[in-house]
Structures are given as structure tokens and as C-alpha cells.
Amino acid sequence: MTTRMWMGAVQPEWKVTVTGAPTDARDDNPPLDAADEAALVAACLAGRKEAFDVIVERHRRHVYQLCYRFVGNHEDASDLAQDVFVRAYRGLRSFKGQSSLGTWLYRIGVNVCLNKVGSKTPKAEPIGDNAAGHFEHPADALVRRERAAEVRAAIARLPKKQRATLILRVYHELPHEQIAGILGSSVGAVKANFFHALNNLKKLLRHA
């Protein structure tokens, strides 16, 4: 309720009172699309599953790409990415906000991928897929695919931490500090892992 005093040469004896809608009529379920991470997590924990839809929508691409880098094919990557989000949902109460939600999801993703994939050689994508996104001569495409398969197979044979470090650094371009947070290591250890990953990758490719 607001009260307006008459502003003029002669002030009348009365005043105008405007009564609006009650200001305490707050919305118990505010929109989630623009909500920050903390609000989304709180909404999830309060039982609003649609808040988790927003989290999935924001992070699904990165999580999927991470999984794809570990397994090298769409089918397994989508299954693993789904598993990452299911585990995240189950463990949401353990998310304390000390890192970003994205970092936390990466951490779950790395664990899921390393546990499920192990050191298996990734399955190759079907030939019909044009990953380069433009017209490519079939022979060139074949060579490119063979080389890509060699690199993926070599990455799959790296020790777990080296593999995760290389994927997060090269393909997700995460800073060393964030990788350290995801892997529970120091920055120095991350850099050392990256160094050894590249060295080992070189050796594996030489023998491929």
C-alpha cells in the first residue's frame, strides 16, 4: 500500500491512498530456466525434478562428449552419459557447491567412464558418419578414420589418470587447476600426468 501526498500550491485536506495487490504473494515455484546452480540443486533436493531437467539440459553436451572421448562411439557414450546423470541425481545431496556443478559432473563422468570402459579398445563409428562435417573423398575419409582409430586405441591403452588428464585437457580444454579438482590431484601432478600421457601416446602410436 502506498500513500501519495498532493504536491501543489494548495495542498488539499485529503490524501490519495492506492491499494495494490498484496506484495507478499510470492511464487513458491519460481521459474528454473534462469536459476543459478545452487537454486537448481536446492530445487531438486526439495523434490522438483524439473530442476534436474534444467541441469541435464545445461550439461548434457559436455558430459556426452566426455563419454564419447572415452568410448569412441555414440551408443556407448549416450548410455554412459545417462549413467552419469543418474548417479549425479542420486548423489545430489553430497554436492556441497565447493566446485561448480560442471566440475562435479566431470568428476562423476571420469569415474563412470574409467570404471566401465577399463582399457578396452573403443568401438569404431560406422563408416557412414562424416565426422569432419563436410564433403570428403571416400579414400581420404577412410585414411582419416584409420588414423583416428589408431589414436583412440592408443589413448585407451594409457594409464587411467593419464588418459583422463589427456581427454580433459586436449578435448575439453579444461585448465589444469580444474582437472586437478576433478581428479583429486595437484596441478603439478596433472601436468606430470599430461606430460607422460603425451610421451606414452607417442610410443603407442609409433608401434601402431
Binding site: R61, H74, E125, L166, V170, K202
Partner: peptide, 18 residues
Amino acid sequence: ETLRETLARASRIDAPDP
């Protein structure tokens, strides 16, 4: 130089967007 070459080779591997 070895590190740089290996990094470049690894970086060329695409991950197709679904």
C-alpha cells in the same frame, strides 16, 4: 617437439556432435 607433434595429432580427432 615430440610433445608438440603428439598433441597436435591427438587434437585432430573429432568427436561428432549427435
